[in-house]
Amino acid sequence: MPRTKEQFEEMRNATRAKIQSAAMQLFAQQGFGMTNVQEIADKAGISIGLLYRHYKTKDELFHELAEFAAAGLARVAERFQSDESPSVLMKGFVQEIYEDMVSGDDLANLMILMSQSFHSIGDTNDGQNGVVTVNKNLIMATSKLIKRGQELDEFAAGDSYEMAMFFFSFIQGLAEMKVKMKDDFVMPSPSILTAFLFSKGG
């Protein structure tokens, strides 16, 4: 019985997901420059010809993954601008990070890929500039959230921008350690991740 259009679309999406997952792991572990298309195809369990039917170049695949990660960061920045309690927003976000980091490697791989996107591809690349903008927006949104939390006496005192930079540098470092250390990595608890914010015991 011939496959339906919907079945073909499901197969296509499943193949793209395999390619993306394989590429994300290899880019994080080896770097963009050290990863070749054949390795991605092998890890995805498909032929290189099939990979090229979905992505014309390795750069195209990398950009799609970077854009996916950037869209996730943009959603976080938007969430931080809501009127909800800053402490509730931050605790919820940190809990999600913790659960994602202990359940698998996808978040860590995406964060490393975002870092690579700053320097792996040409300085004038529009996609790269978009990633830089998204990161800046996220830091600013987090800084404003912390500032609002301080005004509400939910967070400890300090320079809110410096605290936002510290927080995301901390998470980025943990992502890199998770990928490199593998089974020896231990994810700090949410209370440790937010200790600098809740030093008053909030």
Rank of each mutant, 00 (worst) to 15 (best):
P2V: 10
E6R: 14
E9S: 12
N13S: 14
N13Q: 15
A22K: 04
Q25A: 15
F27W: 03
F27T: 02
G33Q: 11
M34G: 05
V37N: 04
V37H: 01
E39M: 13
I40N: 05
A44R: 04
I46H: 02
L50E: 15
L51T: 03
L51V: 00
R53D: 08
H54V: 02
K56C: 01
K58I: 07
D59E: 09
E64D: 13
A70L: 01
A71T: 14
A71Y: 10
A71R: 13
S85P: 02
S85C: 07
M90N: 07
M101V: 15
S103R: 09
S103G: 05
G104A: 02
A108V: 08
N109Y: 07
L110I: 01
M111Y: 08
L113S: 06
M114G: 08
G122M: 10
D123M: 11
G127E: 02
T133I: 07
N135S: 12
N135F: 11
K136E: 06
N137H: 08
T142D: 03
S143N: 01
R148V: 04
E151H: 14
E151D: 15
E154C: 05
S160N: 07
Y161D: 08
F166I: 12
F168A: 02
A175W: 02
E176M: 13
K182C: 03
S191I: 12
L197K: 00
G201L: 07
